[in-house]
């Protein structure tokens, strides 16, 4: 069964890159281009996991992450932050806002797939095996 992944980024380059990395796997892709749209799509699409950029227009990824965590219907969805800021304090802030895990840019395909499988759990490993 395909897992639904919500990709959130304002950069076409990153979205295209993420789509290409996930294209081989059992994933259904949904896209949002800013934090506000991410919150709406998290509610309406109920994805299995969200890949969330940090720096975005309208509403940044950290605020969107906190909002998604606060709402009952979306609080359980794992969120992987995608960040250019790899410094420790930035990562800590992301975790404080409720992210499950993070990857840094430039995105490494293997790392992203491994973290996705990790947050999606054992069922995912069977699907992809």
């Amino acid at each position: 069964m395909k897992k639904k992944v919500l990709l959130v980024d304002d950069s076409n380059t990153v979205l295209l890159m993420e789509k290409m990395i996930l294209a081989k796997g059992p994933y259904e892709i949904v896209i949002a281009r800013d934090g506000a749209e991410a919150i709406v799509k998290a509610h309406s699409e109920q994805p299995d996991v969200i890949l969330l950029d940090v720096v975005m227009p309208k509403l940044d990824g950290l605020s969107a992450c906190a909002a998604i965590r606060q709402h009952e219907t979306t609080a359980h969805i794992p969120i992987i932050m995608v960040t250019t800021r790899g410094e420790e304090h930035n990562i800590e802030t992301a975790f404080r806002n409720g992210c499950t895990d993070y990857v840094t840019k430039p995105i490494n395909g293997l790392e992203l797939l491994a973290k996705l499988q990790n947050v999606l759990g054992a069922g995912m490993a069977k699907v992809s095996a």
Partner: peptide, 20 residues
Amino acid sequence: YVEVEQQNTNLANLYVASYQ
């Protein structure tokens, strides 16, 4: 597998750059 995945990522990088 790691090598192939890395190559895939590299090719994806080049494709995305060219496409953009």
